[in-house]
Design a protein around this nucleic acid. Structure first.
Lengths: 337, 337
DNA sequence: CGATCTGCGTCATACGAATAACGCCAGCGT
DNA sequence: ACGCTGGCGTTATTCGTATGACGCAGATCG
């Protein structure tokens, strides 16, 4: 673990000045060095196992090639990995590193984290929420490039990246409409969430476009957990005119719906069609038949957020990322048609 | 987004030299500055919203207060979050940052990642596998402090941190023995994995200590998925002398076992006691009754790995982290006793 | 043939913080 | 009155890299 070689060492080995080494290895200033010299320098660098000291580089240039990512529950949320991976891959492609901090929702830790990132002269900070919601971005983060991920910044002072819940809800409902269904229920999740509001808005829009007036009795306000999907389904199927299809606000609710329908002796999709939302990996095995659902595009979102950090000119608007419908086998044409 | 203030700005504002600012803010050299001056400096720093430039600091000191974490599947593995969180929290407590790279198993990317970390002059690198296995650490990583996490380095050139599978298997089996069971089956996972070997070793040791000769017929070699747990259980219960308790090599197998036993009309724990392994959060809801299992201590492992990076004197040995039994309700005393 | 240009390098300096070395002054002992 | 010590600051230098300014030889031009 000896001292790492520096440009001076490389320069000495190649018989040139440090400046040339810098010019050659950084790749800028094309043409300032002859090809033969350049090759000599590169060989020497390889020989010595030279790695540039990025501290020195960014001391000189003013910014580090690092993007910070601050999140509340990076560790615990099941999908956060994809959010991070998307951001990391984009950062990496653009020669940046990602520095992640999980604050666990602790405000003091959060501002400390942002402070540390500023100290590292990060290129910018991605401020991430682990479920789609509205956030207030810490003032400290505004002194660098900041982007909200899976969250909408209250005052639109910075760009935000969120899933396009509305279009997702719209397309999910459209799948059911296209299959001929007209009595389509929705089991929604906690309705204070932007996710819930957006998905419902899309649902209603699709119905109206199809000339169907949304029936409030068909919208159940659940909590996004399995049990509320279960209860909602029992309730919905006991209506005088029960739905023939259900759009579930998330996959967990859908799982509850599957159970309830099974207990009622109803088959999916023959008797009732189901569409979910989230496309949660870990639940996938539990759906028989496999659930048609809408995928939350976490990797794409992370990618976009990182790209926005690097593009200083991007406007401070909300960037919606499309949620594609994943067609599986829980939707069938309406019977008797 | 103006230029960030430097120590010189703070010095000017406080009417002192840059050196004093350094002395005061770094906290070292206690007593070199009077309390009044120190206070003046601190006030000025707060006023200007000064954040030290860590690039400059580590350029001077030689190392950055950063720990690198390289893993193959940071994003996709469900528990990796806790591994990372454990490492991050430890790093953070010791004033370090964690820089994470998910290589997706790509070797080229992996060495590039390590190269970048070396360029950042990280304090050390945590080399992480997303399931417990034996790895060969890239040569590049050896030029800095390296630690293996959830993996055992082949040649023991660096410290490794792994779960104590053997003791875990031992204690899991002991729970069943203590409940009076003597015919205890094991549904193991892929048996090339160190996890599988260790858990089985613990299982057999516990049996022998209790004076029971391990019966090979009671050990089913599955694949760690739900279906093999299902098939294993059906097979085991069809034996002439079926087991009264099953130790499942992981929770997913246990879930399969639950299903199989339910179909056979056997109750848990009254008819058959079950112990799992992993304590996977996301499966928890699916166990009725709740599963007694062994927890993989990911957060502790991450913590330890980070601590080992920071402790340059720690020996290059395997550090086993204890896997505690989580007592829930799938174990009952043997009937008819 | 002197002036200008071009290609290829070198020199010197700056980035921001840490720290060794030094300076100054008050207080104290003798 | 002299030297000494401690307390408190300052000055100057250093880390490794990037880059503006400059140098120099050979080619080109008027």
């Amino acid at each position: 673990m000896a001292q790492r070689p520096t440009m001076n060492d490389v320069a000495a080995a190649a018989g040139v000045s440090q400046a040339v080494v810098s010019i050659v290895l950084s790749g800028s200033y094309a043409g300032r060095a002859s090809e033969t010299t350049a090759q000599r320098v590169r060989d020497a660098a390889t020989d010595l196992d030279y790695h540039p000291n990025l501290q020195a580089k960014s001391l000189k240039t003013g910014v580090a090639e690092i993007i910070g990512l601050v999140g509340d529950e990076v560790a615990t949320a099941p999908f956060s990995g994809m959010l991070i991976k998307g951001a990391q891959d984009r950062a990496w492609q653009d020669d940046h590193m990602l520095m992640t901090i999980d604050t666990g929702g602790d405000d003091a830790l959060e501002s400390a984290a942002i402070g540390t990132m500023l100290s590292h002269r990060v290129r910018g900070v991605i401020y991430t929420a682990m479920y789609h919601r509205e956030v207030e971005i810490p003032a400290a983060a505004l002194s660098t490039r900041a982007v909200c991920l899976n969250a909408r910044e209250r005052d639109n002072r910075v760009p935000s990246v969120t899933p396009d819940e509305v279009t997702g809800g719209y397309e999910a409902t459209k799948v059911l409409l296209d299959a001929g269904h007209t009595r389509i229920a929705m089991i929604n999740i906690h309705d204070v969430l932007p996710a819930a509001r957006g998905r419902r808005e899309g649902y209603e829009r699709a119905l109206r476009e199809a000339g169907i007036d949304p029936d409030p009795d068909l919208v159940y306000r659940g909590e996004g957990v399995q049990r509320s999907g279960f209860e909602a389904s029992r309730h919905l199927m006991s209506l005088d005119e029960p739905p023939t299809a259900i759009f579930c606000g998330n996959d967990r609710s859908a799982l509850g719906a599957y159970q309830a329908l099974a207990e009622l002796g109803l088959r999916i999709p023959e008797d009732v069609s189901i569409v979910g939302f989230d496309d949660q990996d870990l639940l996938r095995d539990f759906f028989h038949p496999p659930l048609t659902t809408v995928r939350l595009p976490f990797a794409e979102m992370g990618d976009r957020a990182a790209a926005l950090v690097l593009d200083a000119d991007a406007p401070a608007e909300v960037h919606l990322i499309h949620c594609p419908v994943i067609h599986r086998q829980s939707v069938a044409p309406l019977k008797g048609r």
